[in-house]
């Protein structure tokens, strides 16, 4: 078995196991950690497919930023596990429905493949050594896909502005510190040197 296949199965097994554990472990912090492991294995698989830029960005964005915030929130909330489990029976029919739809989709893909034969999907040919995946993505993004790329950026910007606008509220009677005022404060604003005659205390 070539070394690529060994690594592929290794990462796949880790990924599927970790993904299963995300939804089956009881402690939400463990769930997050297994989700991180899932992302990592996915990134490893992408790097094996010569998509090293996407693989590393997956780690950078999801593991490095999004999951940190998830962990942050879960640590702050101190979730009560019994209340989380309460919804299980109630949402079970919906969950089974979604699972069946996904199963049907997977089976359709398999059926389609069995009809057309796997030969219609040739194995990807590895690129020669000087090939830069990163440069290729940059070129495509800023030529062929410029508009979708820019529109996605605007949509994200709108989402940020909307999130801030929703959470920003001015409350009456709240004392806040004005940092420019604090920084620009000078010695004479805070300190007063008083001329005071020396008091003589009688020692006994």
């Amino acid at each position: 078995m070539p070394i690529q296949e060994i690594f592929f199965y290794l990462f796949s097994v880790i990924m599927v196991t970790a993904a299963t554990l995300v939804i089956s472990v009881r402690n939400p912090v463990y769930s997050i950690l297994f989700l991180i492991l899932t992302f990592f294995s996915a990134a490893a698989l992408w790097i094996m497919l010569e998509a090293e830029f996407l693989g590393i960005v997956l780690v950078l964005v999801y593991v490095g930023a999004v999951m940190v915030l998830f962990l942050f929130v879960i640590m702050m909330l101190n979730i009560n596990q019994s209340r989380v489990n309460e919804g299980f029976v109630k949402n079970l029919p919906l969950g089974i429905g979604v699972a069946l739809v996904m199963l049907a989709e997977v089976l359709m893909v398999l059926w389609y493949k069995s009809q057309t034969g796997t030969d219609t999907y040739p194995l990807p040919v590895p690129h020669e050594q000087g090939y830069s995946n990163t440069a290729e993505i940059g070129e495509r993004l800023f030529t062929a896909y410029l508009w979708p790329f820019e529109i996605a950026g605007i949509v994200l910007l709108v989402a940020i502005v909307a999130a801030i606008a929703l959470s920003l509220r001015h409350r009456e009677g709240v004392k806040t510190q004005s940092i420019p005022l604090q920084v620009s404060t000078e010695k004479r604003d805070r300190l007063e040197v008083i001329d005071m005659p020396v008091e003589h205390v009688e020692n006994n």
């Binding site: 090293e52 830029f53 590393i56 960005v57 780690v59 950078l60 593991v63 490095g64 995946n133 990163t134």
Partner: peptide, 15 residues
């Protein structure tokens, strides 16, 4: 080739 983002990705893991 993607050295800089590799550095950013891994150094964000330290947290």
């Amino acid at each position: 080739n993607a050295g800089v983002i590799y550095i950013l990705a891994l150094s964000s893991m330290g947290v």
